[in-house]
Each structure stands twice: as C-alpha cells, then as structure tokens.
Computed example of a mutant assay.
Amino acid sequence: MTSDNCIGPIALPDTRARHVVEQLLDGSGVAINGDAPQDLRVYHPEFFPRLLHQGTLGLGEAYMDGWWECDRIDEMAYQLLRHGLAERAHTPSERLMYRLQAGFFNLQSKARAHIVGEAHYDLGNDLFERMLDPTMCYSCGYWKEASTLPEAQQAKLELACRKLALEPGMRVLDIGCGWGSFAEHAARHHGADVTGITISREQAELARERCRGLPATIELMDYRDLTGRFDRIVSIGMFEHVGHRNYPTYFETVADRLAPEGLFLLHTIGSNHSGITADPWINKYIFPNGVLPSAMHIARASEPHLLMEDWQNLGPDYDRTLMAWLANVDARWHEIAHRYSERTRRMFRYYLAICAGGFRARHLQLWQVVFSRDRHERYDAPR
C-alpha cells in the first residue's frame, strides 16, 4: 500500500528529522526502507518531522494516511518496545496533557460512559462479526490446549465458569457483557440465570438475539446503576474503561451486589506500571478515555471490599488472539469494504498489530483475578 501513486519507497533527503529518527532506531532491529519484515518503508517526505512532533499519535495517523508501510507491524512494535522506545515515543506534551485531564477530570464518569461505546463498540456489528470468531468474544482467548481461535475463546469462557464454580440456577451478573459471549455460554452450558449489562446499543441488540430462549437478560446500563444480589459476578474486558478515579466505586459496587459466599472474576488487560497514562493514538481512535490498571491499582481499590483468592497472568495468550483477529480482518475485509473506508481498515490493522507487539514484548499483561466477599471455604482455582 502506497500513497500518492508511489510504487515504492521514495528517495528521501537526508534531513535532520530523518537523522534523529534513525538515531532513535539504532540497535532496535528496525530500519528505514530496509528489507526485513519489521522495517518501515516510508512514502512521504514529511513522515519524519511528523513522527518527531506527534510521537505515537503521528506514527499511527501516518500509517492510516498511507505515509508508510510495514510487512509485520506487530514485529516492528515488539522490537521497538524491547528497545525501550515506549516512553521516548510519546512527546512530553502528550503525557502531561493526559495526566492533567485524568487528574482533574473523571474521564469515565456516568455522563461520559457512553463515549467509548459510540466511538468503538457501535462502529458496526458486521465489522466485529468478521474480525472475531463465532463466540463474538472481544477479549483474550485461552490457548493452553487450543489450536484455533474459536477453541481458545470457548476455553476462556469455560475457564471463567470453572473458576466461578457455576451451578445450575445461580444468579450471575456479567458487567460489560459485550455481544453476550459469556452470558450465552454460562446460560446454555451451565444453566445459570445471567444478567448482562453493556453501555453499547449495538452490543446489547446482538447479545439479546444470541441469548434468545436462554435464561439470560441483557440490559443497557452503567454498572453504577445496578441493584440486587448475585451468586456470581464476572467482568471480562470491561475494567479497562473504568478509570482510576472510579476503581473504589467499582469494587464497592461489586461487593454490594455479591452474595456473602459469592465469587467475582475480573478479566482485564493490565499495565506494568501505576502511572496514569494512555497511548494517544489508542485513546483517540480506539478506546477513548481508557486507562490500564496496574496490579497495585487493583489490589488497593479491592482491599477494603473483597478478598483476593487467585491471580493468573495470560498475557502471552493475547498476542496470539490479536494476531488471529488481524488474520480475520485481512481475510474478510472485502466483504464489508463497501461500508468502511480504507483508512478504517488501516486503523484496525494498526491497532491489532501494535497491541500484539505490546503483549509479545510483555509491555502489556492480561490478568484473571478471582475475589470473594465473605467466603469461609478454601478456594482452589482451576487452570
């Protein structure tokens, strides 16, 4: 893919900006206009100034605009992260602005909770149906004994059910139910009575269709409006949207809704560090106002309300999951190309690839944490 009718990398002048970029890349294993799969092929002379001025936001937007190409963006991201470019890739003004916003404003308040739903999850069910597998799980699969994406997602859903020790007739709450993957699985295969909530209208519509005829109810609702008590609570791939200012409220809500002998499973992407930051490109184009929790964030916020029973890291499995989603996008995009722009296609390819590289570099983690409220029995987590 090139821009401006280029048939290959253009001969760029040896500008100061290019020289600075090449110095930053030195020793990373990533080169400009090289032959390796992770090398960048640059097609626009303003790429280097844009990269230095805008950091990762400029890198991502330049890819969406067709200013550069790379055969393996996932490997490029992996190499750059291993080389230590994660912080240097963000401009100081970007980091300061997000920290100021997150510090003075609740970016994930109830009034703003709909933003990520409308910006990302409501893009179109037809897009996600082609990117994901038939389970419509939009979270990390469990690849321990799986060889295909559907197998990995079924294994993840079943692992969550086993960790929760589900039994027929149990009242189960699914916070951030997505397209109903867990609700359908728990109701169909374990006889659970499931209530799923989401802030996405598109997700709610499809989830209700998928759960028709099963003991599962899907509500368009913010978690802060919940009432009632549940034997089990699960939250898969939603905590990333809660925000650090709301962590205490989140765990207090879960504790209030959980029966005394109940169990709660939290499945979330995690950060290695406790600083309040976000990648500016991901924040603008994929998950607005998202914040990744650290282990310390989770431990501190949950401690007054819940007892931590088990913690499992599945981070490497997300690399494989994201690459499977990327393969689906590449294989099936032609089916929806008439509805979405080429820029949107490149946006999704870039998003999936750089995230895969992030998990491969262990820059990102995926945690499943099990909590209890007032449990007296010993808990042994299945694996």
Rank of each mutant, 00 (worst) to 15 (best):
Y98W: 15
Q79K: 08
L96S: 06
A89Y: 12
R82Q: 11
P92E: 01
Y78N: 08
I115N: 09
A86L: 12
M97C: 06
H83D: 11
A113N: 14
V116H: 15
E94I: 01
I73W: 14
L107T: 06
A86G: 15
A102L: 03
A89D: 01
A86R: 13
R99F: 08
H90Y: 09
A113I: 09
R95K: 11
R112T: 11
Q79R: 15
I73T: 13
C70P: 06
R95S: 11
G117L: 09
R88E: 05
L80I: 11
S109Y: 13
L100P: 07
A77P: 08
G103L: 01
Q79L: 12
V116E: 03
T91W: 02
S109L: 09
H114V: 10
K110N: 12
R72C: 10
I115H: 14
D71M: 10
D71S: 00
F105P: 00
A111Q: 14
E69C: 13
A111S: 10
T91L: 03
E75T: 04
A77D: 11
L81R: 11
V116D: 04
A86Q: 14
I115V: 14
F105M: 11
H90L: 10
A111M: 10
H90I: 00
E69N: 15
Q79P: 03
K110P: 09
A102G: 10
L81S: 06
N106I: 09
D71V: 04
L107R: 09
F105K: 00
A86S: 09
E94R: 05
C70I: 08
E94L: 01
R95Q: 15
A77S: 15
Y78G: 02
D71L: 04
H83T: 05
E69H: 15
I73D: 07
M97L: 12
D71I: 11
A89H: 07
M97R: 10
G117Q: 06
F104M: 02
A86H: 14
P92Y: 00
A102W: 11
E69G: 11
A77T: 14
A89M: 03
Q108D: 15
R72D: 07
E69K: 08
R112F: 04
M76D: 12
M97I: 08
L81K: 13
L85H: 08
R95H: 05
L81D: 05
Q79H: 14
F104T: 01
P92V: 04
S93Q: 13
D71G: 04
R82Y: 01
G117M: 03
Q108K: 08
L107K: 06
A77V: 00
Q101V: 02
K110C: 08
A102S: 04
Q101R: 14
E94S: 06
D71C: 04
G117A: 07
L100M: 14
L85N: 06
T91E: 08
L81M: 10
L81F: 12
L107Q: 06
P92C: 01
K110I: 07
D74L: 02
R72S: 08
D74P: 07
